[in-house]
Write a protein that binds this DNA or RNA. Structure first.
Ligand code: DTP
Ligand code: DTP
Ligand code: MG
Ligand code: MG
Ligand code: MG
Ligand code: MG
Lengths: 459, 459
DNA sequence: CATTTAGCT
DNA sequence: ATATAGCTAAATG
DNA sequence: CAATCCACG
DNA sequence: ACCGCGTGGATTG
């Protein structure tokens, strides 16, 4: 490698959640963007925290590497049999009989805002604030501007960038319009966010004797007619691949991966692992820097190492990715696991102010819970220090709670315990019941009340 | 209940591991024995520690009771469906096609000693010391003397009791003689201790057209011929029941439970849960005092409560017991999980003496490991204070060790950390490999080096 | 993972 | 005066 | 179980 | 001068 050390081009080693390219960011001068991001960030508390986190990840990777070096040829042959067994099981489970669509709206929030205010047309647009933007339209993306980027950096990258504050009422409205379309193709379609859904079109294709691609075409037209918004669609034999495919011809496009093993394997072979949902920045680095894996097919090549190094569930996932497998079923019902409310405010040490913030958060949390008739028995308090360190403190209660009073009183205790100088825990422990899920859907195990931007506690 | 409170007859509430009756203790005056045990114990450090433990168990039971009281009729109907499903799955797995024997030598160590020194015949005999006895012959048991009882108490119960120190060479020799008999009936017989084994005689019975009872008869004769020792045998369709059966006609007897569902259910119906291997003093109390369960069949009656109150694995076990089920297969190979060496000595605060004891223990542990060519990567130091409180401190190492030096150096660190005044742990944590079992049988996850009777550390 | 508790011989 | 030794499994946080 | 980390929209 | 919010899953000790 001829790559220079950190010294010369420090911006190259500062990777953020938004460093990675999204759809519509192909022609962007990545070097320039990274440099600007770095210049705008360096020295900040946020930046320093990111550095700390990166250092730990680096260490983690070093450890993995060391473990990897310890593995003997003997070990490898042992793990190869494990891996081969796993993979043949996985292969046996391959189901090419289903046709799945993944539909994803184009620059969703931004497109909605433009639809409602056509004067925004043809201008670089971001939905969000100076602190954080939720998404940007495709014109803005040409400047490197994208979701998860703070607004003040985006503005630096694109001075004419127009900012529109988020308005979730609108997005929910248009989201509901799209959700009236999907049932025509699959009554059990799975909505995974306001702007995307999985649709099992196997039956429709059979009934009407048409292809997945044709359904996609029709679906996109219908959605456009019903909403005035464009979406992009992926067609593939499973959900994981369909999601990858929907991104390929964005915006306003579609991509079909045929239900054919050869086609799938060819597709997967050169596919960068980072395109797979579930493989993010850290996992990508780990796999690349420890095992030299960049593409999905390399997962299979290094299957023995993967089994040696990673947990059962991780190696299962990685190998299935290497084989181009994914879920093909429709899960019955996804029960909500947690509900939370958190706010960021400017750093303070004023305790009474903190308790006041906590009061507000408890209120909105309680309200949100009542809306869905929910109760919970584990309350988690989340704190973020002025140096962006995150801490969580939790209690499991005996009874389920959802009133503002209960939430506030328990959360206050947790907060109090952190304030003077986090004391030791008490002696013997209680023990709670294994009959938690009995009260079916209405009872949660988690609530998170968050206070963000609390001033440092220990240091 | 007309039972008096603790005040009048305090000995009634002091239950020890040896309070429960063993085979051959039927005619014993339990009241008198308990009283003597209590008188010999009360006021001792050991006694006080037992009181503390009992108090916690009592509390645990109270908690369970409270939880139980919380359960609504609604909950019960929910858990009843769970329980019914579990039970029908269990019932579906019932296998009445196998015939298992459980063979258990009578008063094993004592019988061996008597065989070797016939002058001991006809006298009450205990193998062990004034501190602890390993077993007693049936004559001694008539006095309430039994394994796990300290010798000085046993002597009080039976002043003429003869004590013989244990001599494992002998027991191993005779054990091996018995183990030359079993393969004739089942090449894959399972030896679970020096004096007992499970033998699957299904095939032998078919081949020779004889019953399980007949095989048992023959086996007992053969063992007697080969060793001069008697054993007792249980015959049943699964191992759990066979073990219960082997105890019924002890000594020198056998009991056959036919391979018939009705017979099994009748047998189980009145069987006290305490007879089941795995249900000891604490579990018995929990089930009795919380759910009023005393017999196996009551497990089925209270199946909903059991599922509501206990963990998955516990409730599975309890329900299978209620149905008279047990393992019918022969596990491939039981890998050793740990190896340990521990010594009790008189309490001391002298640190150099403690390190010397540790040195000796490390030596015997290392020797034992070398005998079997074993290494381990988790070293546990076990400490017992003069007040009988037990503490364990463990480290997981990166490499497998088995030398005296390695064991001693790590164990010493652990000991040192406890001595001045157990300090805090360090900040960030390491993380070890998930490729531990690769080096198959020769590598252990556990070693325990124990120092017993260390003087108190915190208090 | 480290620690404790329960169980057995 | 004297309350074991060696092992497994599960729960707990 | 409580805490942290990763990931996604 | 500004680096979010809500959720689910896995790992770790
Ligand atoms: N950090 C975030 N990343 C992505 N989307 C976010 C984020 N925060 C909020 N959102 C909202 C705004 C998006 O319009 C909406 C849908 O996300 P997503 O489909 O990934 O992008 P998008 O629809 O804006 O653009 P496109 O799908 O065309 O790439 O979710
Ligand atoms: N608590 C104990 N501590 C140490 N060794 C024990 C203990 N219990 C039993 N042993 C040893 C000595 C026994 O002779 C041997 C076999 O145990 P076990 O079969 O339960 O009793 P036993 O064979 O002495 O009498 P029996 O089986 O006739 O009731 O294991
Ligand atoms: Mg989208
Ligand atoms: Mg989306
Ligand atoms: Mg015996
Ligand atoms: Mg025995």
């Amino acid at each position: 490698m001829a790559s220079t050390s950190d010294g010369d081009r420090p911006w190259q080693s500062y990777h953020t959640v938004f460093t990675n390219a999204k759809a519509g960011m192909d022609g962007v001068d990545k070097e320039k963007v990274q440099k600007t991001v770095y210049e705008m960030s360096k020295g900040s508390k946020y930046f320093e925290n990111e550095q700390r986190k990166e250092a730990f990840i680096k260490q983690k990777i070093e450890n993995l590497r060391a473990q990897c070096a310890q593995i003997t040829a003997n070990d490898i042959s042992y793990f190869q049999t494990i891996a081969d067994k796993k993979m043949s099981e996985l292969e046996a489970s391959r189901d090419l009989s289903k046709i799945w669509l993944h539909s994803d709206m184009d620059a969703f929030y931004a497109s909605v805002e433009t639809l409602v205010d056509p004067s925004l047309n043809g201008k670089p647009l971001a939905v969000g604030s100076m602190s954080m933007i939720c998404t940007a339209n495709y014109m803005a993306r040409k400047f490197g501007v994208r979701a998860a980027m703070p607004g003040f950096i985006a503005r630096k990258l694109c001075p004419e960038l127009i900012f529109v504050p988020p308005d979730f009422k609108k997005y929910t409205f248009y989201s509901e319009l799209t959700r009236k379309v999907f049932p025509k193709y699959d009554p059990h379609f799975i909505a995974t966010s306001l702007d995307e859904a999985y649709i099992n079109v196997t039956e429709i294709c059979n009934e009407r004797g048409i292809s997945g691609g044709e359904v996609a075409e029709e679906l996109r037209n219908t959605i456009y007619e019903e909403t005035g918004l464009t979406c992009s669609v992926g067609v593939a034999p499973n959900r994981l691949l369909a999601k990858v495919c929907s991104d390929i011809n964005k915006p306003n496009g579609q991509f079909v991966l045929p239900n054919d093993r050869r086609a799938v394997m060819t597709f997967i072979s050169s596919l960068p692992i980072r395109k797979i949902g579930g493989i993010g920045k850290v996992t990508e680095s780990m796999l690349r820097e420890v095992l030299g894996i960049s593409t999905c097919e390399e997962m299979v090549h290094k299957s023995a190492h993967i089994c040696a190094l990673f947990s059962h569930s991780s190696s299962d996932f990685f190998l299935s990715v290497g084989l181009g497998l994914g879920k093909t079923d429709t899960p019955q019902f996804k029960m909500r696991k947690s509900i939370s409310s958190e706010r960021t405010f400017s750093a303070t040490e004023d305790e009474s102010l903190l308790y006041q913030k906590l009061d507000e958060i408890a209120e909105t949390l309680s309200n949100d819970m009542h809306k869905e008739d929910l109760s919970g028995r584990t309350l988690t308090l989340k704190l973020k220090t002025a140096s962006f360190e995150v801490r969580t403190r939790a209690v499991s209660l005996q009874k389920y709670i959802n009133s503002k009073q209960d939430i506030l009183s328990h959360a206050s205790k947790l907060l109090k315990a952190e304030l003077p100088l986090s004391l030791r825990l008490m002696g013997r422990k209680p023990c709670l019941t294994p009959r938690q899920l009995l009260n079916h859907c209405l009872y949660l195990e988690q609530m998170v009340a968050s206070l963000v931007y609390m001033i440092l506690i220990y240091a």
